[in-house]
Deep mutational scan, measured.
Amino acid sequence: YQDQEQRILKFLEELGEGKATTAHDLSGKLGTPKKEINRVLYSLAKKGKLQKEAGTPPLWKIAVS
Rank of each mutant, 00 (worst) to 15 (best):
I8N: 01
G18H: 09
E14N: 12
G28I: 14
R7P: 03
Q6S: 11
L44M: 15
K19G: 14
E14C: 08
A45K: 15
N38H: 12
Q2W: 06
K35W: 07
I8A: 03
K47T: 10
K10Y: 04
W60K: 01
K46A: 12
A63V: 09
A54E: 11
Y42M: 12
L9M: 03
D25G: 06
K52S: 06
A45F: 15
L30H: 02
G16H: 03
L12N: 00
L41E: 01
F11E: 14
E53I: 12
L12M: 14
T21P: 02
K52I: 07
K34Q: 10
R7I: 11
L26E: 00
L50H: 00
K46W: 05
Y42I: 09
G28H: 15
A20P: 10
G28A: 08
L41K: 00
E5S: 06
L26P: 00
D25M: 13
K34F: 09
V64H: 04
T21R: 04
T56E: 11
Y42P: 01
K52A: 06
Q4A: 05
L41Y: 02
Q51C: 11
T22R: 02
Q4T: 13
E36A: 13
K52W: 05
R7G: 06
I37V: 15
G48I: 00
G18I: 03
E14A: 14
S65Q: 00
S27K: 04
E36P: 03
Q6V: 10
K49L: 14
L12E: 01
T32D: 05
E14H: 10
A45N: 09
L15I: 07
L44Q: 01
Q6A: 13
N38L: 03
G28F: 14
S65P: 15
G31A: 12
T32R: 15
K47Y: 03
K29D: 04
K52D: 02
R39P: 05
A20T: 14
V64A: 11
V64P: 15
G16F: 01
K19H: 11
R7L: 08
K34E: 14
F11G: 04
G18S: 09
E36W: 08
S65G: 11
L41P: 01
D25H: 10
W60F: 05
K46T: 07
A23P: 02
K35Y: 07
A45H: 08
A63L: 04
K46C: 07
T21W: 12
K46G: 10
P58Y: 03
E17Y: 05
L41Q: 00
T32Y: 13
L59E: 06
K34A: 09
L12H: 00
L30V: 05
E53N: 09
I37N: 00
A63Y: 07
S43F: 07
P57I: 04
L26C: 03
T56F: 10
V64C: 15
T56W: 05
E53G: 07
D25L: 11
R39A: 11
I8V: 12
R7Q: 08
K34L: 12
G31T: 06
K49C: 11
L59V: 13
L12T: 02
T21C: 15
V64K: 08
Q4E: 06
E13N: 09
D3T: 08
Q4V: 05
K47G: 08
A63F: 04
E13W: 06
L30G: 01
Y1Q: 06
S43I: 12
T56I: 08
L41D: 01
A20I: 03
L12F: 12
T56L: 09
R39L: 07
A20Q: 11
E5D: 04
S65C: 15
I37R: 00
Y42D: 07
L59W: 05
E17W: 04
K49Y: 09
K29A: 14
L50A: 12
D25T: 09
L9W: 02
G48Y: 00
Q51T: 15
K10N: 11
V40W: 11
E17G: 13
P57M: 03
L15Y: 06
Q51R: 11
V64Q: 14
L41R: 00
E36H: 12
A45S: 11
A45Y: 14
L12W: 02
S43E: 13
G55S: 09
S27C: 11
T32N: 05
K29R: 12
G55F: 03
G55H: 05
L15Q: 07
Q51F: 12
G31D: 09
P57E: 08
F11M: 13
A45V: 11
G55M: 03
Q6R: 12
A54Y: 14
L50C: 15
L30T: 06
L44T: 01
E17N: 08
E53D: 12
